[in-house]
Amino acid sequence: MRFRLMPLYRLGGWGAAASMIAICGLVSVQVLFRLLDAILVLFGGDRLGLEIGGVSELAAYLLVGASFLGTAYTFTHHAHIRMSLLIQRLPARVRVFVETWCLGVALALNLLLCWSLWTLIQESLSYNDVSSGMLAIPLWIPQLTLLVGMSLMSLALLEALGSTTRTAVTAPASYQPFDEDAKEV
Rank of each mutant, 00 (worst) to 15 (best):
H78S: 13
R34Q: 11
T74P: 07
G70F: 08
Y73E: 11
H80C: 02
T74V: 09
S19E: 01
V41N: 03
D37I: 12
L26F: 10
L86W: 15
G15P: 03
D46Q: 13
I52C: 02
S19L: 01
G54L: 07
G53C: 05
S28W: 14
G12S: 10
H77W: 10
M20L: 15
R47Y: 07
F43D: 03
S56N: 13
S84D: 15
L48I: 08
V55S: 08
L42I: 00
F43M: 12
P91D: 14
M20Q: 01
C24T: 14
A59I: 04
R47Q: 13
H77F: 03
A72F: 05
L36G: 07
I52Y: 05
R93V: 12
H78E: 10
G53H: 12
G44A: 04
L62P: 00
L48D: 01
A92M: 03
G15N: 04
G15R: 02
P91L: 10
P91T: 03
G15L: 08
R93M: 04
L11W: 14
A16I: 04
S19N: 10
A17F: 13
A16F: 08
T76S: 14
I21G: 05
G53D: 10
V94G: 00
F68S: 00
R82G: 09
A16P: 02
C24W: 03
G65L: 08
A60I: 02
T71H: 02
G65D: 01
G44Y: 03
G45L: 07
A79S: 13
R47V: 10
I81V: 15
